[in-house]
Simulated scan of single mutants.
Amino acid sequence: MPVNPSRAIRLMFARALAVVAVVALAIPVATDTAAAGRFDGDWKVYVYGAPGKCAFGYRLPLTIDDGDVLYKGRKVHPRVIGVSSAGAVAIQLGSGRNVVTGTGALNARRGSGKWSAPRFRCTGWWRAVKQ
């Protein structure tokens, strides 16, 4: 049965964040205190797949609180979604062959970047807007 790349990637984003948020609660994490407060607030993140077989749109609400990224009120480990004190964003969802990686940057009100999922031969971009 063929895999629908856009559906698989949307599910990977949702499942990876849900699993990581739960697991992250058990892992003590050192935060970058220089970033604490600089990007704090509620963010709407829009994730898009490139046109073609990977085309999709996905909205993701995140909060940054004292330098920590939160999804549905739970801390996300910085190896999954991390924001540096300068606003550099690094993303790694999933593991093994089923991995989505991304990069980008935030400023005080907006952010953007790109992502890729090599197994599905998909790429895309993301945009963030502070609420």
Rank of each mutant, 00 (worst) to 15 (best):
A34F: 10
R74N: 09
D42Y: 05
V83C: 14
T63D: 11
G113H: 13
Y48D: 10
G73R: 00
I81M: 09
G37P: 04
T103E: 12
G113Y: 13
P78V: 05
L25I: 08
G87E: 00
V45R: 00
S112R: 02
K53L: 13
D68T: 02
R79G: 14
A30G: 04
V19P: 04
G94N: 10
H77N: 13
G52W: 14
R74Y: 06
T33V: 09
G113D: 12
L25H: 06
D40N: 02
S85F: 00
L62A: 13
A24P: 12
G113K: 14
T33C: 06
R38D: 06
L62K: 05
V23A: 13
G67P: 00
Q92D: 03
D66K: 11
L25A: 11
G113I: 15
D66T: 03
V47G: 14
R79S: 14
K53F: 15
Q92W: 00
A36Q: 07
R79F: 13
A21T: 10
A86D: 05
D68V: 01
R110D: 12
G104N: 06
P28D: 08
A24L: 08
V100T: 11
D42A: 12
T103Q: 07
S116A: 15
A90W: 07
H77G: 11
S112P: 07
G111D: 15
T63K: 09
L106I: 01
